[in-house]
Design a binder for these strands. Structure first.
Length: 598
RNA sequence: GGGGCUGUAGCUCAGCCGGAUAGAGCGACGGUUUCCUAAACCGUAGGUCGUGGGUUCGAGUCCCGCCAGCCCCGCCA
């Protein structure tokens, strides 16, 4: 309906100008904004224009009279009367617009033949970087990586669908002090791990990492050795390099198992990738006069952000010992991503999907990048923050033993619970299914539940993780949406021709309110996609898909399809087909595959 | 001390650019099945939108103060 909304907006502007030419002539006048919005309630029609109300004061007229004058001018436009029924003026001066049923049917018809379901491909596409997931080498992926991975993937999918060339970058933690610690520790306790691939498994590596961290925190000699080890590594020492390479390879393979399970595609480009550019970052900042040496550290002082003593807060880009830190790497990454090829990605939009705790850090780093002039005209640099994953007690999610929850275990449990639920249901209904079917459904439902529960929440707030809620069969959950798709597949199995062959030329004539409700819901899809692309809020897409499922279920419950009168059958089958296509596409953009039966 | 985020029904949460009587889901209570999977549908109850001001024709939404919770705050990432 985006196209129609644009048309209506233009028509309203013309009507306003014609109704009040004296205002149109004023250069400093109030101007005209139709304030066109989707109708807030079905009884108000399809759209409402609220633009008459703000004109009341400047024009010195009653808002309803202003609305009436606008409506009169609208009615004088043939293009408008072809599109809409007679506008209604309601309340204090709202103009309610209802589209002609045949225009709605036209729109449905267009979408039936359109694989993009009415979503236009983007014009003038330029690369978009989505930086997400980003686990640390030599650690296992845990619940803390869940949200970034799932949200980032979904945003990337939406942007890709719109036609942007998307670089999905996995900015893994593969550099820095942590490696000094780990390698130093391993040299002493498990030297074979540094020269032989897979000498220890990742779980052990994680334990070693923890030990190394503990030693680092209270053993000064160990700290010193670790720092020296980092210097060796950065200096390209072959032994250190090889150890590092082995650790990275091993972690990479473990990460990939998770990504494969979740059907997530990512290009690894870790922190180390930017090492060759760190010097240039500092030089660049120096050349643009932003760099200040303070206490031996080279930093950029932020504008508008002050610390304890009221002094501006610094972003440190080179430590007093000459080393670089994460801010330097992040700056190098921004610089590289916006820079033109071959020494850059040529991006026009760079998106970081990380927890909200890093908001200050990114705000600082972004400010420096902007002031350094690294963003091209129209370049967008955005932090997409999200809240913590909490348990049902409202505290940070932990295992019973108090450990961090591994992502692997979390996914396993979701699938196990989905399987148990399915088996119980099969037993209750006396159904018998093949083992392969059960495994496939349980896996799909379990993983879908985890993804959907995360995505359906406004990402900025903390997220209360609950297997029971996400796997519930009713409510705003993955199983509920998947079930709507299954119901439509059931119609096809029982002889409904969803491919459109049945009376393909028959006009789409709808008679029931449930049909119209479904039509209107289906036509919202393009606007929802546009909104997610802009606001980077996948929960808006979830809400839409849930509402679509609800409207469909109401239709399914109250309006027969297969047993409809012969002339009513084709249009109803068409609605089923478009609903299924919309749900499949929408869920696909959330990274969730659908099922034919469940 | 400074900064960020959050505060909406018993619980979990939506709420678009400020628009009409603030919405879902769960839970509670009550209904619906000779018919496409009842994993569904229909209905009832449940709200000082943390709080006090301000702006506006109109504020859950914007501005300021306050309260509460979480997070961040110089050489870790």
């Amino acid at each position: 309906m985006l196209r129609i909304a644009q048309t209506l907006d233009a028509q309203l502007r013309v009507a306003m100008e014609r109704a009040f030419p004296q205002v149109a002539a004023q250069p400093d006048g109030p101007g005209f904004d139709p304030q066109l919005a989707p109708a807030s309630k079905p009884e108000f029609g399809d759209f409402q224009a609220n633009g008459a109300l703000p004109l009341a004061k400047p024009l010195g007229q009653a808002p309803r009279a202003i609305a009436a004058a606008i409506v009169e001018q609208l009615q004088g436009q043939p293009a408008f009367t072809e599109l809409c029924l007679e506008p209604q003026i309601a309340g204090p001066g709202f103009i309610n617009l209802t589209l002609r049923p045949e225009r709605l049917a036209d729109e449905v018809q267009l979408r039936l033949g359109d694989p993009r379901l009415g979503v236009p491909p983007v014009q003038g596409a330029a690369p978009v970087v989505v930086d997400f997931s980003s686990p640390n080498i030599a650690k296992e992926m845990h619940v803390g990586h869940l949200r970034s991975t799932i949200i980032g993937d979904s945003l990337a999918r939406v942007l890709e669908f719109r036609g942007h060339p998307v670089l999905r970058l996995n900015h893994v933690g593969d550099w820095g002090t942590q490696f000094g610690m780990l390698i130093t520790h391993l040299k002493q306790v498990a030297p074979e791990a540094l020269s032989t691939a897979d000498a220890v498994d990742l779980g052990d590596l994680v334990a070693f990492y923890r030990q190394a961290k503990a030693r680092f925190d209270d053993d000064e000699a160990f700290q010193t050795t670790s720092r020296e080890e980092v210097v060796k590594l950065q200096g390209g020492d072959p032994v250190s390099r090889q150890a590092w390479q082995l650790l990275c390879d091993q972690s990479r393979r473990e990460f990939q198992k998770i990504y494969d399970r979740l059907a997530i595609r990512l290009s690894e480009r870790g922190e180390s990738f930017y090492n060759p550019y760190l010097e240039a970052v500092v030089a660049d900042l120096d050349a643009s006069g932003l760099l200040v040496t303070d206490d031996g550290a080279r930093c950029v002082f932020l504008e508008g952000v002050s610390g304890k003593d009221g002094k501006p807060l610094p972003v440190i880009v080179q430590k007093s010992d000459g080393g670089f830190n994460y801010a330097t790497t992040d700056l190098a990454a921004i610089r590289y991503r916006f820079a033109a090829a071959p020494e850059g990605d040529g991006a026009r939009r760079v998106i970081y999907v990380t927890d909200a705790g890093q908001a200050n850090h990114f705000a600082g780093v972004f400010q420096v990048a902007r002031r350094a002039g690294w963003l091209p005209d129209g370049g967008r640099l955005e932090h997409v923050p999200f809240g913590l994953v909490q348990g049902e007690d409202g505290k940070k999610l932990k295992t019973r033993a108090g450990d961090t929850v591994r992502l692997r275990d979390l996914l396993d449990e979701a699938v196990e619970r989905a399987e148990a639920d399915l088996r119980r249901r099969l037993a209750e209904e006396g159904r018998s299914e093949e083992e392969a079917f059960i495994q496939h459904v349980a896996t799909t439902v379990g993983l879908a539940a985890v993804k959907y529960a995360d995505l359906s929440q406004n990402r900025i707030t903390n997220y209360q993780f609950s297997f029971d809620r996400m796997l519930a069969l009713q409510g705003n959950t993955a199983p509920y949406l998947l079930y709507a798709v299954v119901r439509i597949a059931g119609i096809a199995r029982k002889g409904g021709d969803l491919a459109g062959g049945e009376a393909a030329d028959a006009p789409l004539i709808f008679t029931e309110p449930q049909e119209w409700a479904l039509v209107r819901e289906l036509l919202r899809f393009d606007a929802v996609i546009a909104e997610v692309e802009e606001e980077l809020l996948p929960n808006r897409l979830c809400t839409y898909l849930f509402e679509l499922s609800q409207v469909f279920n109401r239709f399914y419950d109250q309006v027969p399809v297969l047993k409809a009168e012969p002339e009513a059958r084709p249009p109803r089958l068409a609605l089923c087909r478009l609903t299924a296509d919309t749900l499949k596409l929408g869920l696909g953009l959330l990274g969730i595959p659908t099922l034919e039966r469940m």
